[in-house]
Design a binder for these strands. Structure first.
Lengths: 183, 183
DNA sequence: AAAATCATGTAATGGGTTACATGATTTA
DNA sequence: TAAATCATGTAACCCATTACATGATTTT
């Protein structure tokens, strides 16, 4: 069995929770993993078919009248594949962070404008924080546990930390700029 | 002037520091921005030509004997384009984090194995931390300032924070697992 | 003399988003 | 009955990595 494609990883992973259709998988991704692992229809549907062909998932027809619907569940090979993958140490870590790049390059702007790059990055973090808090608000008290909730907490706490860091750094940069001016 | 491609952003940004050849740009990316913005030869060389065609950079022949070498510098249009871009609020923020996905899905494994996903993620952070510390070690005392150094500090401090968070969470998860067993 | 590094480039491939297309069912 | 949502899918792009190709110069 050859390597799982990135999209196969989320799909199989999500199907460990319960069987879902492609449409539902997409919805679930958008509500939960999207902050660290995205997937689009253009990837999900073709991948589901490949996975079925490979014998890792099995589709079941669940049409409602004339509206098509296929839910997929893991086969025993599929379950085994997910567990095997989960046990491997993680490899992929890709980040493309424009806010960070702008902070990195801020010296190309006049001193008075540099701190703003940090405040922009702070705001980016605060916006993310708001989204994550909204997600959390939709989770009933008794469900606030388990792995999925843990990652949400990581998202929230790391955003808070990052926003505070940016704020601090911005103040520093700003006071440097004004003190140098005063001289 | 149409939108800057992702690779154009790093290239133009790096050229604000000083003129460089494609080869040097790649080296610089690998030593500095790679943690939040990558670029490969397959993107850099074609993009440099597109940017020259668009009048944002200008190449100068600096061959050494028979060895070709073209260094590029920003044109005034180019400088203007970078500054304009830097002033826009950042948009791109893409993360693909396998460690996080595995933590998210850890409940698919038996309780005794769940904490390991968090320890793996901690180790990923510690590995990154080590790389960043090595980068820092190569920077002379008097150069430890400015925007570029600031982002390095962010990388270091956020990795430390994340590693500590994972460690804490792993202990929590582990004690949950063993206490539930004891019952 | 060999190995490392400098230097530039392209073709194959992979992975992904976006926009488009289509139509059913449910809700307001 | 109109709008929203459910549901599936594809084609056109875009972006990127990898491997390959080539050869000069510098260091060991």
């Amino acid at each position: 069995m050859r390597n799982l494609s990135p999209t196969a990883k989320v799909i199989l992973g999500i199907l460990t929770l319960r069987p879902r259709s492609g449409y539902e998988i997409k919805q679930f991704v958008d509500r939960s993993t999207r902050f660290f692992w995205t997937a689009s229809y253009g990837q999900i549907y073709p991948e589901l078919r490949r996975l079925e062909e490979a014998g890792l998932v099995e589709g079941a027809d669940e049409a409602t009248g004339d509206r098509a619907r296929t839910t997929y569940q893991l086969t025993s090979n599929g379950k085994q594949a997910v567990r095997a993958w989960l046990r491997e140490p993680p490899e992929t870590y890709e980040l493309r962070h424009e806010g960070m790049l702008k902070v990195f390059l801020a010296d190309a702007l006049p001193p008075s404008e540099r701190a703003q790059r940090l405040l922009d990055m702070r705001d980016q973090n605060l916006a993310k924080l708001e989204q994550l808090r909204a997600v959390e608000a939709g989770i009933p008290e008794e469900s606030r546990k388990g792995s999925t909730y843990l990652t949400l907490r990581f998202g929230i706490e790391s955003s808070e930390w990052a926003a505070a860091w940016c704020e601090r750094a911005a103040r520093q940069v700003d006071s440097d700029a004004t003190s140098r001016k005063r001289k």
